[in-house]
């Protein structure tokens, strides 16, 4: 009996199961209810002396588990092998896409400018595009006969008996300075982005409207050194750490001293290797502006600056015709 058991173990362990048919043959041969070899030996257990029967019984049970285990493993392996393989599609076909959207280059430029100043503690203020004479001119120290009040330069919406009755499309974002200072006591640190208008013939370099970002800082002891510093920080943030910048004296009615700021723009084809490009105007808030809004110019000083968004966008992207911004040609927009 012991010999038969050894032979059976050897047969169970070494009978190959390499197909579903072989598995079934294996099951019938060893585990079959009627003629399976293990079943057969169970039936013959009576031939063994009673004292050996438990040991033989255990061995037979172990053989049965072994056969079942082999069969289960083989079947799992066969199922695995029989499962169909994932087909590889033509990976070079184009993907199914959604439409691409984009932000206008002026938005991107304006946001880039505003973000720098927000990081420097400026909050955003906005004002109306329709302005009265007071906010657009008089409070900003424009004399009554200043050329900007002329019909040739400014869009008028209403004209009254006096120049003070005029309503215009704002010619700059500086009126936001006035509106903020009229409502808020110092310290004031704001940035005012917005659309402005000029009654000019449309050409590649001028449009009837454009966008400006205005800045204003009013507090005790604000100096021109502070103004230079903030604009230098700005220029480095927007144009790179090694930007070259130049402050030169200029004139605006609402600031004094006034300056224009140029940055050096490298141009490989230029005989001098580049040229100075004006990017903004700035200066110390004129005492008359403070007086107009009821801030004491002896107690407070301040600076203001203003820049053209189109101009900076044209520099950043190498755009040479300002009209492209308002044409909204998709072939232009999709590049941003």
């Amino acid at each position: 009996m012991q010999k038969e058991l050894e032979a059976l173990r050897h047969a169970i362990e070494n009978t190959p199961i390499d197909s579903e048919e072989a598995a079934e043959t294996f099951r019938i041969r060893f585990l079959g209810q009627r003629s399976g070899q293990i079943t057969h030996l169970f039936k013959r257990i009576r031939e063994v002396p009673p004292e050996e029967r438990p040991r033989i019984g255990q061995q037979l049970n172990a053989l049965k588990r072994l056969a079942e285990q082999r069969l289960e493993e083989a079947r799992a392996r066969l199922r695995q092998a029989a499962r169909p393989r994932t087909e590889v599609p033509d990976l070079t076909l184009p993907g199914r896409r959604a439409f691409t959207g984009s932000l206008h280059p002026l938005t991107q430029t304006l946001e880039a400018i505003v973000r720098v100043f927000e990081q420097l503690g400026f909050s955003v203020a906005e004002g109306p595009e329709i302005e009265d004479d007071w906010h657009n001119f008089t409070a900003l120290n424009f004399p009554p006969d200043h050329p900007a009040r002329d019909m040739q330069d400014t869009f008028f919406l209403r004209q009254g008996a006096s120049y003070r009755d005029a309503v215009v499309l704002r010619t700059h974002t500086s009126p936001v300075q006035i509106r903020v200072m009229e409502q808020t006591p110092p310290p004031i640190r704001i940035i005012a982005p917005g659309r402005v208008y000029r009654n000019e013939a449309v050409s590649y370099k001028s449009f009837c409207l454009f966008h400006q970002v205005e800045g204003l800082y009013v507090d005790h002891n604000v100096s021109m050194g502070d103004l230079k510093q903030v604009l230098y920080l700005f220029a480095r943030a927007l144009f790179g750490e090694d930007v070259r910048m130049r402050f030169r004296p200029s004139f605006f009615p609402f600031t004094e001293p006034s300056a224009e700021v140029d940055i050096w723009w490298p141009l490989p084809d230029h005989p001098e290797g580049g040229q100075w490009m004006e990017i903004l105007g700035c200066g110390m808030v004129h005492p008359n502006v403070f007086r107009a809004v009821g801030i004491d110019p002896e107690r407070y000083t301040g600076y203001a600056f203003g820049m053209g968004v189109e101009r900076i966008a044209m520099l950043r992207y190498g755009i040479e015709d300002i009209r492209l911004f308002y044409e909204n040609d998709l072939r232009f927009l999709e590049q941003f």
Partner: peptide, 30 residues
Amino acid sequence: PAEPPAQALRRRVRTLLAGMGLREIYTNSL
């Protein structure tokens, strides 16, 4: 600094709309 609601939300919605496949345009006010 505080951010005015119109602006805070405009920034968000601009990005959403661009993400939905729309192109932002700037047209003449006149």
